Amino acid sequence: MRSIEEIKKHYNWNEEDEKHLKQMKDIAIKHKDNFVNKLYEYFNIFEDKDRYLKDEKIKERHKAHLQAWFLELFEGNLDHLYISKAQRIGTRHVQIGLPPHYLNSSMNFVREFIESLVIEKTADANEKIKILKSIDKILDINLDIITEAYREEEFKTYLGTSKIQKIFIETIQGVSRSIDLFIVTIMSFLAIVGGGWILYEFVNLVLGRVSPESTALEILGSTLILYAISELLNEELKHLKGAPLSLKVFAGIALAAIIRKILIISLYPKKSIELLILGILMLFIGIVYFIINKVERR
């Protein structure tokens, strides 16, 4: 981690910045509760926020920490103790597995919240600009320190493994990535073939070469399958970029396949038992899809 002297030098931090922040201290105290409430409203955009804020006890403790951090921004005391607290924030976020994106986007919200206060409560235009610049500095310094703590903690974890373990992990990661690329290639090929087949059947339908009723249902069913393949392809692309793989996509594909089969069988009255079995199977997979979706949102 960089020294306090380096940080101040690189961000051109000076006594004027401390003074500007302290000017906003009284306003910050008045709006500390509103800050936490608004920030928690913002957290609702993260679908899996409950994975990190699991119960009311954790939420209350977290709110208290947020409020304390918010007020300390306006103390203007950029010293070793302040840097140490920011480092612990980064370390703790790594320990609970919080994605850095959540931290960065939340910091952007904090910046907008504070800047709106400065704009609203500061009358003098020149003073307003100076305070806003100091706000940007202290928030960027916080983000810099916390991000650095993220990297150091993750690097320590990596160094904790032996050389053989590292080679094994890197080899497995390479194989896994190759498999993902292969799946994406196959899915792309299937999507092209499926789209071509739908177009071919549609042309036959328009030209009157096939039965309108059965062909229309087959086209509808195949469109569902094509849509499911598209969703799986998008999910694989996200996975290649580092996102976790969602199981609900596979349940969705199974549902699409069963619906397609039901559409086709519905043309044959004698297959009512098979239709009933497929209906029960569709209900079962639908329940599984609902459960997976609910779990992944936590």
Rank of each mutant, 00 (worst) to 15 (best):
F168D: 14
I172L: 14
L71A: 09
R111M: 06
L103R: 05
L159P: 01
A125R: 10
A125Q: 12
R88L: 13
E152A: 12
I135K: 00
F70R: 01
G97W: 02
I179M: 13
L143Y: 03
I114Q: 00
A149W: 01
L103H: 12
R88I: 09
F109W: 08
K133F: 02
K85N: 13
S162H: 03
E112S: 06
Q95W: 09
E115T: 01
S176A: 10
Y150L: 08
I138H: 00
S116C: 02
I89H: 08
G97D: 05
E152W: 03
T147W: 07
I83F: 09
I141A: 08
D124C: 07
P99S: 07
T91S: 06
I145S: 04
R92T: 14
D140A: 09
L71Y: 05
D124K: 02
I89R: 08
F155G: 05
E170T: 11
Y82P: 08
E120I: 00
F70T: 03
Y82E: 08
I96W: 04
S134Y: 00
K166I: 09
K137R: 08
E75C: 08
I129M: 03
V118Q: 00
L81N: 15
G174M: 14
D180F: 14
S84C: 09
T161S: 11
G90W: 02
F109C: 02
T91L: 07
F155V: 04
A125F: 11
L181D: 10
D136R: 11
I145Q: 02
S134T: 01
E112F: 00
D144N: 11
K121T: 05
I135D: 00
I167P: 01
H101V: 15
I138A: 04
I131T: 03
Y158I: 05
L139W: 01
A68S: 15
K166L: 11
R111Q: 04
D136E: 13
H80C: 09
D136K: 13
E72S: 11
T157K: 15
A68I: 14
T157V: 10
N108D: 11
L78K: 05
A123F: 03
S176Y: 13
